[in-house]
């Protein structure tokens, strides 16, 4: 799995594997709860939850599963919720293309990745064909 550079000061809230569609629901619920606990409003809660939902669905559909890690801590001088999705799937051949609105290699609408990026404050994606994909989204108050 590809690990992104992280801050040792971040506090790990939750980390678990994602194997079934049911796990997506569970992960989404905990993200919503953590966002609520962090003092985010209903709109921000919905945004981060939806962004994570997009990433997890991608992970489930294209990589067959992976790991979701939820952390909190200072990001760019803001108290933030940091969510990382790691998988060992086929990877993304053309990241630039995948980030374009309306492009999909599967059955989806093609708004998942670019949409998720618009919903959060920071978005980082690293992918290597054959090794996997890691996406990290950050939302602050």
């Amino acid at each position: 799995m590809i690990e992104l550079t992280s801050d040792p000061g971040w506090e790990l809230l939750e980390e678990h594997p994602l194997e079934t569609e049911f796990d997506i629901v569970k992960a989404r619920q905990s993200v919503r709860q953590f966002a609520k606990d962090a003092g985010m409003g209903i709109v921000d809660q919905t945004r981060i939850t939806t962004a994570v939902s997009e990433l997890l669905r991608n992970m489930y559909m294209y990589a067959g599963g992976g790991i979701i890690r939820i952390q909190k801590g200072l990001f760019d001088h803001h108290q933030s919720l940091i969510i990382t999705c790691l998988d060992e799937g086929p990877g993304i051949d053309n990241v630039e293309l995948a980030m374009q609105d309306g492009y999909t290699s599967g059955q989806g609408m093609g708004y998942g990745l670019p949409g998720a990026k618009r919903l959060v404050d920071d978005f980082e994606l690293q992918s290597q064909p054959g090794k996997g994909t890691t996406v990290r989204v950050v939302k602050w108050k």
């Binding site: 709109v43 919905t46 945004r47 939806t50 609105d101 609408m109 708004y111 949409g115 618009r118 919903l119």
Partner: peptide
């Protein structure tokens, strides 16, 4: 469709 969901849909670009 709640206001929060409406905003999210717009941001997603759907």
């Amino acid at each position: 469709i709640s206001p929060a969901i409406a905003q999210t849909i717009v941001h997603l670009g759907i």
